[in-house]
């Protein structure tokens, strides 16, 4: 399993994850493609998610044609992005996260109830180039996580349940094979119940890792 963790790679100086995405393309493109095509699990969290999106690995190409690793065209065709939060600033808060029913990331299907964990980002606003692009994502089952309220009901754009203005409350997406998953929130900050600000044992982020480890050993 490959986890691309959070953190401000290169200080996000040219936009979140952009500069690290170039590294992925220049130095690791072939290795990463091979890994993904072998069906091994890849998880991008926060800056790791931004990097995978900006490098074009999420949601990934529709065709399986080979691409040259720094071909500008493939970047220009990118239809999804993570941009500046709608409120214009970095924000840290705990949120609830529901796994999308019918997502291609089927390993997530048996997660029980919403995941409860923090977001901490300034550029987590998921946006698409057009309504059609959004429809395609949803129809193809590429939406993996959405922001929901404490009862698991859709945020419908309401702040702060949807903390950053993401279109259709999208918090995370996956590729068509379902083995590459990216999300803005930080499931790694809720591994032990004692980390939860609300107490109780519900919503452990650990479950996301457990689900993906299942893929690794599949």
């Amino acid at each position: 399993m490959l986890v691309l963790p959070g953190g401000f790679s290169y200080g996000d100086a040219l936009g979140a994850g952009v500069r690290q995405a170039l590294d992925l393309r220049v130095f690791f493109h072939d290795e990463l493609r091979e890994f993904i095509e072998a069906g091994k699990p890849v998880l991008g969290i926060c800056n790791g998610f931004q990097t995978l999106v900006k490098a074009g690995f999420l949601p990934g190409s529709t065709d399986n044609g080979a691409r040259h690793n720094d071909e500008p065209q493939s970047m220009e065709q990118r239809q999804v992005t993570l941009t500046q939060n709608s409120r214009g600033r970095f924000e840290c808060r705990w949120i609830h996260l529901a796994v999308e029913h019918g997502a291609k990331a089927s390993c997530l299907a048996h997660l029980e109830g919403p995941v409860f964990c923090p977001v901490a980002h300034g550029e987590g606003n998921f946006q698409v180039s057009s309504d059609e692009a959004l429809k395609r994502l949803e129809k193809e089952g590429l939406v993996a996580f959405r922001y929901v309220d404490e009862h698991g009901l859709p945020a419908r754009g309401r702040y702060p349940i949807n903390p950053n203005g993401s279109v259709a409350d999208i918090a995370g997406i996956c590729n068509r094979a379902g083995n590459v998953i990216g999300l803005m929130p930080h499931p790694e900050d809720h591994i032990d119940p004692i980390q939860s600000p609300l107490g109780g044992r519900k919503g452990l982020g650990l479950s996301v890792f457990q689900a993906m480890m299942g893929l690794a050993f599949a």
Partner: peptide, 9 residues
Amino acid sequence: ALLLVDPVT
């Protein structure tokens, strides 16, 4: 294309 412009926004 690779560093300065986000094609979506």
